[in-house]
Structure formats: structure tokens, C-alpha cells
């Protein structure tokens, strides 16, 4: 294996600086004691973090997003695991078409999905409903789960299932005792990835949320278009911390590169 030369390393350093710069700035500014967006030079202050809790709408949006992400990720698992089993293990007419349908939200711009959901919800009188917001998020995050479940299923050793079968296990027992534990990393990884994607989603949500169901990213976007103050930095810093935490868990458990890069 050849080593990288000095020019390559200098280039790499610049890229890393470029990637980290906005995130670092947010984390620094969040601790400013000033009233303006400035990097704290003399002292650090938590005043802007306290400020968040004076804004009940931010807290409400945060709780709302948490519920939304938890529910939609969980429902996505319930849909994607059986669908993944059918697509990977059976040959039936329309299989490829269904697979494409399940993965289509990945190639349809969220903008278009947002518009489409808004139209549907308006027609059936579902605008502003939290339930329908969850459903729309399920559509967006299911492909992520399905992809990981499919990768886990095709990557697992089928002979383990056959062995269980020859030892007298029923189909359901084989799934419960052999298949499910073997694809569990894929399922858990999929759930976390779905959670994060739902929690961060802005473009689609901004079309289908109502004042009562505003998610945190939508709230932040609205706030940032009106005014920019260090409280935004504090909220952003909290979100970065949350994501970094989730990332560490994902990486420790499964290797983040595997989940994000995907197998093959």
C-alpha cells in the first residue's frame, strides 16, 4: 500500500477543514455570552442554551420530532422486514416492480413528495394531522430500512436456516430463532438511520406540518429566515451533539461506513 504524498495530505487537510468549519463555528458561537453571533473570546456562557427553554415552541417541536421519528422508524421496520423477506426469499410476479416502488422515495425529490402529500392531505381533509405526518415520514424512511434489511438478508448464510429446518423448526420458529437474530444488526441500523432521517427531514415536512405539528427542523428554518441570533446556534449545537451521539452508537455497533456506504 502506497502512502499519500505531502500534496495529497495538504489537500486532505483543507477538505477536512471545509467539512468541519460550519459545524465547529456553530458549536463555538453557541457558548457566546454576547447578544450577537460572535465567537466567545473571553468567557463561555450557557445563557443561549437556557434561552431555548424560554421558548416553549422550540421545546414542543423537539418533543414532537422525537415522537415523529420514533413512530415512523418503528412502523418502517414493521413494513420493511416482511417486505424484505418476500423480496429476498421469494420469486413472485411483480417483485422487481414492488422493490422499485419501495425504493422510489429515494429518487423522488422530497420537494415533490411534500407537494404531493399536501395535495392528498388537502383533498382528504388530513392537513395538520399528526397521524398523517407520521405516515408521510414512514414513506420517506422505509427505503433506508429496506435497503439495510435486504443487504442483511442477502449477506446472511442461508444454510443456517436450512440447518434449523432439518432440526425440526417450523417456518415461524426459524424466523424467530435464526433469521431475525442474524439480521438484527441490519434492522437496528435501519431503525437508527430511519430515526435520524425522519428527525432531520425539512423539505417534505415544511409542506405538511401545521402550527400544531411543526417539527424541530421546520421550526428552526422558520426562525432562521426571520432572525438569526445565538439561540439558533445553541439549538443547532444540541442537534449536532445528538447526531454525534447517534453516530457513535451506530459506528460502535455496526460500523457507520457500512451503513452509510451500504454493502455493494
Amino acid at each position: 500500500m502506497q502512502k499519500n504524498g505531502p500534496i495529497a495530505l495538504a489537500f486532505h487537510t483543507l477538505v477536512v477543514a471545509f467539512v468541519l468549519a460550519p459545524l465547529l463555528v456553530i458549536c463555538l458561537v453557541a457558548f457566546t455570552p454576547e447578544n450577537t453571533l460572535s465567537i466567545p473570546t473571553t468567557s463561555f456562557s450557557l445563557r443561549w442554551f437556557r434561552e431555548i427553554f424560554v421558548h416553549p415552541d422550540f421545546v414542543a417541536s423537539f418533543v414532537n420530532s422525537l415522537w415523529l421519528a420514533t413512530l415512523s422508524a418503528t412502523i418502517a421496520i414493521a413494513l420493511a422486514v416482511p417486505a424484505g423477506l418476500a423480496i429476498d426469499r421469494y420469486d413472485f410476479p411483480g417483485r422487481d416492480g414492488l422493490n422499485a416502488l419501495f425504493l422510489s422515495p429515494l429518487i423522488i425529490p422530497h420537494l415533490v413528495l411534500g407537494v404531493a402529500f399536501l395535495r392528498l392531505f388537502a383533498l382528504i381533509g388530513a392537513t395538520g394531522s399528526f397521524t398523517w405526518l407520521v405516515v408521510s415520514h414512514v414513506i420517506i424512511v422505509t427505503p433506508y430500512v429496506l435497503r439495510l434489511v435486504l443487504a442483511a438478508l442477502s449477506g446472511m448464510d442461508r444454510s443456517a436456516e436450512q440447518a434449523a429446518m432439518t432440526l425440526g423448526a417450523s417456518h415461524w420458529t426459524v424466523f424467530r430463532r435464526v433469521t431475525a437474530p442474524m439480521i438484527l444488526p441490519g434492522i437496528t441500523g435501519g431503525w437508527l438511520l430511519a430515526f435520524i432521517n425522519s428527525f432531520d427531514e425539512l423539505t417534505m415536512s415544511i409542506f405538511v406540518t401545521s402550527p400544531a405539528t411543526v417539527t424541530l427542523p421546520v421550526r428552526m428554518y422558520m426562525y432562521a429566515t426571520e432572525s438569526i441570533d445565538p439561540m439558533m446556534a445553541a439549538v443547532s449545537a444540541l442537534m449536532i451533539a445528538l447526531t454525534a451521539g447517534a453516530m457513535l452508537v451506530l459506528d460502535r455497533a455496526f460500523g457507520l461506513d457500512k451503513i452509510l456506504v451500504g454493502q455493494k
Binding site: A21, P22, L23, V25, I26, F199, D200, L202, P217, M220, Y221, A224, I228, M232, A233, S236, M239, I240, T243
Partner: peptide, 9 residues
């Protein structure tokens, strides 16, 4: 990390 956060940065 949410796009809103990065845009804000």
C-alpha cells in the same frame, strides 16, 4: 446532521 443546521453554520 440536519441540513438546516449546516446551512445555518
Amino acid at each position: 446532521v440536519s441540513v438546516v443546521v449546516r446551512a445555518f453554520g
